[in-house]
Amino acid sequence: MTDSVLSVRDLVIEFATRRGPLRAIDGISFDIAKGEVLGVVGESGAGKSLTGTAVIGLVEPPGRIASGEIRLAGRRIDNLPRDEMRKVRGKQIGMIFQDPLTSLDPLMKIGDQLIETIRTHAAMTWAQARDRAVFLLEEVGIPAAAERLMAHPHEFSGGMRQRVVIALALAAGPDVVVADEPTTALDVSVQAQIIALLRRLTRDHGMAVMLITHDMGVIAQIADRVAVMYAGRIVEIGPVREVIGRPHHPYTAGLMGSIPSLRSDHARLRQIPGSMPRLDAIPQGCAFNPRCDRVLDRCRVERPQLASFDRTAAACFDPILGHDAEVRA
């Protein structure tokens, strides 16, 4: 992973409470290479959004990065002063959130927002910046881009708004884009359009993308690799085909089995008993052990580390291997 643009090493994020610190992210590491899309998937409470927040340097008290490091193109960014980090964000890291309205100023014309962002990060005249804004809007598939510069966010539909946000994220030509549930608020038909757009943009622009979502379907459509998170840890990471087709970790397998499919007729869905533990009640050993149907005595005391199986890595003492990997009939 020498060509990795974003590199996260042993990241630990804690929340201060009056009963002592709670560990929300417990030692995760991953890399994203240039032109690569890493999907970060998990259920609510897994810590996937918090990981994204840490990468863009917006972890707010009572949360704090307790240890570990985040490097962007080799430079450490987790300990930068606020002002420095603000420059990095926007110029080197683009952001796309679930609700487009959080990223757009409702009172400002979208052209002005784009032009301002472009000029903050690049030495351009107003006219040059305007041309670039039109180019970006065309790039994200907004028809009649030049006229739409004069429109306010509320004049756009939900899908078009998310396109504008994507254009904003791309404005400064970032190395990394962090996209947190970018399609969750959208209808299925619009979601498909945004997925296709994101896929094309990553290919054309060669950025590294960290795509955070709860939707395995979206991951399957865009991501190259996927990291599955559970209770603040990465339980499995590897190429998306491998992880979906032959999951090694029982949680991944259970997750895949519990997704209803458009194709097959199962009378019952596979289900994982119980639910994600709360931060103040994460089980000892493997955090998944109380819900796991392959649990060993060892899982209850010792925490498994990520170990490689074929092309993926899973944190499990008794991973699903070879013939018993057929989880989807």
Binding site: G158, G159, A192, D215, M216, L262
Partner: peptide, 24 residues
């Protein structure tokens, strides 16, 4: 048809499909 086409497919993810047109 458009709706069913638009659902991300876990089993055949690499098939590049024609995304739905327009919005509601």
């Amino acid at each position: 048809r458009m709706l069913i086409e638009a659902v991300p497919d876990l089993e055949a993810p690499s098939v590049v499909r024609d995304p739905a047109r327009g919005e509601i």
